[in-house]
Design a binder for these strands. Structure first.
Lengths: 392, 392
DNA sequence: ACATGTTTGTTAGTAGACCTTCCTTACTAA
DNA sequence: TTAGTAAGGAAGGTCTACTAACAAACATGT
């Protein structure tokens, strides 16, 4: 028995006018730029290849690939490597490869309050030159000038053409590289990317440090396309990769997970501690490096392990809804291994599995980030690769 | 004093080879399809416009827009509406408009266990015809046949060309419309979209019901581009929109938030209840419609309010990390208003604000979904619009 | 009333991007 | 030696969107 009515009353009321619609026209030249990035991406990830290899991988014809490769050869981005040595049927292939060592990327890591870390890197992330410049507590305009100076020095020191400058900075940063707010540097509404780009004459990309870390782990560290990376340092932050894309969020503040309340009055036997943000019981009050050190200070190894496990459980409880809602494949921890990579990580894993349904928690991995030391620099390099060459 | 070292030791180790790389070549014809969608999208959202209007809005030239519009006129997707009546300077514009009433979309909502809800709708979501077919407890192949029959009847009953069929179904569903698992229908690995498409000769799109609801609210309900919609019915699910795109997740299971553990032994004075999934304390055990009804049954109004508020606080605690990590702008609740839209929603809002940092929680809205009754159908229609015409 | 300026939409020509088809080259296999 | 296979290039065609120029149809100012 089926009921049928004509012209039902319930109607959504028609389409809604939206102010901000992301309407970007696509011209043939954009298509070409995209295909060019496909070629570069193939060479970046797969190494030296023949034009025919690239054609098979990208779906483009050999003719088109030859054309694109010719353009890249003319730009010196790609080098002719001669015929392939392996013996196969048919005409031997001539290999072409990305000239990754003949182009440099300048990267800066502003995560550390006391020191600006900088590097000149090749396109594949090898560090060619390093600088560590004490900030001397500079903030505001002085800090911006310092960053500009370091960047200029590195750009000038680079012995190869510089593709661009990538900067990894704490704070809320929009798509254009404007620092909306970075309290620890006293920056509010500072157009860092456009300022440096104008001063140095080189493309500059700026993004949040946790986000760049996520990018770095994805491109260089083999992280999954659906990953959250939790960075533990002075504070606690997170970078989120969903289906291979960085999550920016409504107000460019995605990943600001350090100030979620995780400790309640009546829960788990903990007492909420005051937080720098003026509230109490934030994740940062238990998981930041200083908080962890305070917690284990003077404890016997066994008690310290229990204390760290307790924090791990809190982290697991906090992440369970995020992992479930996004069906993430991996959770990465970045920070001091002696604190994180032990009872804390194990307890967090257990808690996360226990609190999520099997289909979510089953093949979930919770591991340490692999690029710990240079993750932020590597991520900053990816910013440039992605922004200038379209390589992800 | 700055330290400089050459050729530092820490190197990321080069790029990683990735199996699944989303390399899709872009041809000029794809660019044209994109621009065509831009024109359709403008007409959909802004209503009848002149070619010059569309050119200004899309950034394309008037020549190109004229060309695209001519093609759409030839396809009868767009109609010539004559000259604009308003008096302005210059040659009067001739308006063109989407022929939304001259094309139909067939939509099915499989959320309800007992009944298949179906509709014939116009492109702007007006319901032209409705069907409610009892399932009679059919499952597995029988249920699939039933769905196919209903879809066929509606396609044949449509008095205008059918652009496609959109289906909103519970369960885990991949991008191709294959139902990975839908326990309540006994479907495991059922290629619903391709099966129906072959049987009906019309494009068929299938997606998770919570996800389609999110799409519907975004397109017809004015929801923000960064939104989570929590659907409360027999179970609890969620649909997630991040930066305007649906989140699918690693295993297409994003949004499965109903089975996150939210009630602990030692917490908040609640006792964890057993859940259908075999675990205890899941969100579904307190927030599903039956659970809520059980909870307030026989209570005095005042006590019922307190009970609902308690569930609201639990929901707020669960969502706080998600909202923070993704910097969401809106949380929508979909389900029985008499249970959700009151103390529960208010308590959840308060809890959510209290547990997130101000920059996140400040302009966060937690409101009821606007399309409650037909949200799933509207969302299914959006699936078709988006898949066939590129309208979002 | 009439010239002037503005806006619309079309026509014609151009440049770019990729395709299909055909060819040469250079190797392996029988 | 003869086939067969694969790589790469050359020629020609189609598609796409652009610029430039223009006619039509209106409002406005004198």
């Amino acid at each position: 028995m089926s009921t049928t009515t004509r012209s039902g009353t319930g109607r959504p009321g028609g389409p809604v006018q939206r102010q901000l619609r992301p309407t970007a026209k696509v011209l043939p030249e954009h298509a070409r730029a995209h295909n060019r990035s496909l070629v570069l991406g193939h060479l970046f990830h797969e190494g030296p290849s023949s034009r025919a290899d690239i054609a098979r991988s990208t779906g483009l014809t050999r003719v088109t690939v030859s054309d694109l490769v010719a353009a890249l050869l003319a730009e010196d981005l790609v080098a002719d490597l001669g015929v392939r040595s392996e013996a196969r049927v048919g005409k031997p292939a001539t290999l072409v490869g990305l000239r990754s060592a003949d182009h440099h990327v300048v990267t800066l890591d502003l995560t550390d309050d006391d020191t600006v870390h900088g590097a000149v890197m090749t396109l594949v992330g090898e560090v060619v030159r390093r600088e560590h410049v004490p900030t001397g507590g500079a903030s505001g305009e002085a800090a911006a000038t310092l960053v500009e100076d370091v960047a200029r020095r590195l750009v000038e020191a680079a012995e190869r053409p510089v593709v661009g400058v990538g900067i990894s900075s704490p704070g809320v940063i929009d798509d254009a590289g404007r620092v909306i707010e970075a309290p620890n540097r006293g920056w509010y509404d500072v157009p860092l990317a456009s300022r440096l780009s104008a001063a140095l004459g080189v493309p500059v990309h700026v993004a949040n440090d946790a986000n760049t870390r996520a990018l770095g782990e994805y491109t260089y560290g083999g992280a999954d396309a659906s990953t959250i990376i939790v960075t533990v340092g002075q504070g606690v932050g997170a970078g989120l990769l969903v289906d291979g894309a960085l999550v920016r969020g409504r107000g460019h503040a995605a990943g600001e997970i350090g100030h979620v309340t995780v400790v309640d009055e009546d829960t788990h036997g903990e007492t909420p501690q005051p937080c720098a943000c003026g509230r109490t019981g934030c994740l940062e009050t238990v998981l930041s490096a200083p908080a962890l050190r305070r917690r284990v200070a003077g404890l016997a190894p066994q008690d310290a392990d229990a204390a760290l496990a307790s924090v791990g459980r809190t982290l697991g409880r906090c992440l369970a809804p995020v992992v479930s809602a996004l069906n993430l494949a991996e959770v990465l921890l970045s920070g001091p291994g002696e604190l994180l990579d032990g009872p804390l990580r194990e307890a967090a894993t257990t808690m996360l599995r226990d609190r999520t349904m099997p289909v979510i928690g089953h093949d979930l991995r919770l591991r340490m980030a692999t690029l710990d030391e240079d993750a932020a620099l590597a991520g900053a390099a990816v910013l440039v690769l992605s922004g200038q060459l379209g390589i992800t």
